[in-house]
Computed example of a mutant assay.
Amino acid sequence: MGGFLSELGRKLAERWLSLLVLPGALYLAVLATAHALGHAHPFDPARLAGRIGAWARAPAAGNAGGQAVLLAAGLAGAAAAGLAAQALGTLVERLWLAADWRAWPFPLRRLAKWRVERRQDRWEAAARHYDRQREEAARALALGRWTDPAERHTAHRTLVSVSAERPDRPTWCGDRIQAVAVRLDRQYRLDLAAVWPHLWLVLPDAPRAEITAAREALTRATALAAWSLLYLPVTVMWWPAALISAVLAVSSRARTRAATGTYATLLEAAIRLHGTDLADRLGIDRSGPLTKEFGAELARHLHTDPPARSARTPHQSGRVAGPREP
């Protein structure tokens, strides 16, 4: 038991160090550099070395007690910056996935609706172009002619770059997750929101580990966007911080899209591969692959009836329960 606890503590310390302290320490270092150099001397290593030397010769840094206090303050500041980035990253993730955009405050909801409509127009235009390419290829195949598939593949990539299914959310990442629910409903009549919590509990360790890793990668990618936003105020003191912010923003966008695609693919694969396992655990007597009939039957087992509006407790009704009145 002691070995397990020590190993658990070591892993927690490693995660705390890698996710919070190290990025926060880098942020504090950039803040110190910005304060030391300013706009007038943005790339002056001699000036930076001189300022650091002056800080090191300060009375507070000349004894062990002062150094311990400075070290503790530095660790606390780095951890606080890391926690701020994690909290901001959660907000960024919610905006990028946009699962509940219809419940956002009015200005954001109106902007999100405008984005959805614009993306739907782009998707429908790309879908029409892709359909034309497929029809031309089908006609050529019926006549025994060979056609170069490059243009058809390009049209498909253009379509998917907008959304894998018809857009329903204001962002690509949100629609990539939504596409899983749309496909499962269309092909198997499965409700992803109802099925997934139950399926997660019966998944084997290997797919659970893969999905967990993909979800953590998505969280880390959105945290990069949070760091990008935190570096923006530093540009007031030191303009090169804008370059750091831009690099982090571009990297975060690319990594978030990749992580979202991986996560969505794993979700869909897990349901397709292990949906029958969930049926076995629920006592549904069925063999063979997933079908629409199977999906409908599974949905009936997992569906939760809404509460009856007439079923009120004595406290809710405001009177003592008794025989039903005519």
Results as ranks from 00 to 15, higher is better:
M1D: 13
L5Q: 14
R10M: 12
A13K: 15
W16P: 03
L19Y: 08
V21F: 10
G24F: 01
V30I: 12
A36Y: 04
D44N: 15
P45H: 07
L48I: 03
G50R: 15
G62Q: 11
A64P: 04
L75C: 09
A79S: 09
A80I: 06
A80Y: 06
G82Q: 03
L83N: 03
A87G: 09
G89Y: 01
T90Q: 14
R94N: 09
W96S: 09
A98N: 03
A99H: 10
D100L: 06
A103G: 09
W104I: 03
R110V: 07
R110M: 14
W114T: 12
R115V: 00
R119S: 09
D121E: 14
D121N: 13
E124H: 07
A125C: 04
H129C: 07
D131N: 06
R132H: 11
E136D: 12
E136L: 13
A142C: 04
A142Y: 05
P149A: 01
E151M: 07
T158N: 08
S161M: 00
S161I: 03
R166A: 09
D168I: 05
D168H: 10
R169I: 01
R176Q: 15
A181R: 08
D185E: 13
Q187P: 02
V195W: 09
W196V: 06
H198G: 05
H198C: 11
V202C: 11
D205Q: 13
E210V: 10
I211W: 15
I211H: 11
I211M: 13
R215T: 09
E216A: 13
L218P: 04
A223T: 15
A223G: 09
W227M: 00
L230Y: 02
P233C: 00
V234H: 01
M237H: 12
A242W: 02
V250I: 12
R253V: 01
T262H: 12
A264Y: 03
T265E: 15
T265F: 08
I271Y: 00
D277C: 05
L278P: 00
R281S: 08
T291P: 00
K292R: 14
H301K: 14
T304H: 12
R309I: 14
H315W: 12
R319F: 10
A321K: 06
G322F: 04
G322V: 01
P323Q: 05
E325L: 15
